[in-house]
């Protein structure tokens, strides 16, 4: 127990609680991830680099990351708007709308995938109106963005909403007294206060979108070099029993996940420090 430098507490169960936590964490998460990293080391640097630098892998990474970035930006904009409307204005059915925002968390990704594909297919509810305008959504990168926007939507709303809720009206009253108009107040008072939450929500949506699989594969069309996302490449390699190739790509994705996680922690640290100074 000294190993963890535990401070004295009268409560029992530290050893049991922490022991079980560490056991389960190692068994389910850490050891399997270690196996992945060890497996990829069988390739060596040369082999690893040759596997992950093929045109097809690079194209898929660009697509996965690019589409996720666009989706996260759309989510940041509309997520902020939705959070704003939910916190500040009242309208009929608000509670229903508030509950509905979490739908992408609750709806299985495969269901979202087939529903969106059917809607945006050339003869679908949306597709039939977009097709004459020359906009193809299903089976193109635009479709991927639509799916990723869907699954990432709750992240921004749910991170920004509590911050807007806690914002004190006195600050805005003071700004009004000092002669600021609404737009200035939004720009100088409200927005800076919500920025860390917005960035956190954006990064969470981005992280989720880069690894997303279920909702995308139906709408993407999965054309190599055009609309093939990285997780699908891993599945493709596995189906050809190319375990090493799949592992190498998985390690790249794992590194991207770690960078995102660091980014999120960094933003929260920055926000905490900024908050502390104020």
């Amino acid at each position: 127990m000294n190993l963890f430098n535990k401070k004295h507490s009268v409560l029992p169960g530290f050893g049991l609680g922490l022991g079980y936590t560490l056991f389960w964490l190692c068994l389910i998460v850490l050891l399997p991830l270690l196996a992945l990293v060890l497996k990829s080391s069988e390739l060596g640097w040369q082999g690893f680099w040759e596997t992950v630098s093929t045109d097809r892998v690079i194209a898929s990474l660009k697509l996965s990351f690019g589409a996720s970035l666009v989706a996260a930006l759309i989510n940041a904009l509309f997520g902020f708007l939705v959070a704003w409307v939910l916190v500040r204005y009242s309208f009929p059915g608000k509670r229903f709308v508030d509950a509905l925002v979490d739908l992408p968390f609750a709806l299985p990704t495969a269901v979202a995938g087939i529903a969106l594909t059917t809607l945006y297919a050339p003869n679908g509810w949306f597709g039939q109106y977009l097709e004459p305008l020359g906009i193809k959504v299903a089976f193109t990168p635009i479709g991927i963005m639509v799916a990723l926007t869907f699954i990432g939507l709750p992240f921004v709303v749910r991170t920004v909403q509590p911050v807007l809720q806690d914002l004190e009206a006195e600050l805005e009253e003071a700004a009004t007294c000092l002669g600021a108009n609404r737009w200035q107040i939004f720009q100088r008072v409200i927005f800076p206060a919500t920025l860390p939450a917005l960035l956190t929500g954006f990064t969470l949506a981005l992280a989720r979108a880069t690894g997303e699989f279920g909702s995308v594969i139906f709408i993407a069309g999965n054309i190599p070099m055009v609309s093939e996302i990285t997780p699908l490449l891993i599945i493709g390699k596995l189906e050809q029993y190319d375990y090493l190739g799949a592992t190498a790509i998985a390690v790249v994705m794992l590194m991207i996940s770690f960078v995102m996680l660091l980014l999120i922690n960094g933003i929260q640290w920055w926000a905490g420090r900024r908050h502390g100074i104020r």
Binding site: F4, N5, K6, K7, S9, L11, F14, G17, L18, T21, L22, L25, V29, L30, P32, L33, A35, L36, K39, A207, R208, T210, G211, E212, F213, G214, P231, L232, I234, I235, L238, Y243, A246, T247, A250, M253, L254, S257, F258, M260, L261, N265
Partner: peptide, 30 residues
């Protein structure tokens, strides 16, 4: 309880959320 490495442990518990589901399946295949 207060103990060393608590922040790291909390981050590690959240780790599966930031890993692609496909990678999650792959690690068990390996």
């Amino acid at each position: 309880f207060e103990f060393r490495g608590k922040a790291l442990l909390t981050t590690l518990i959240d780790l599966p959320f930031s890993i692609s589901p496909v990678v999650a399946g792959l690690i068990y295949v390996l």
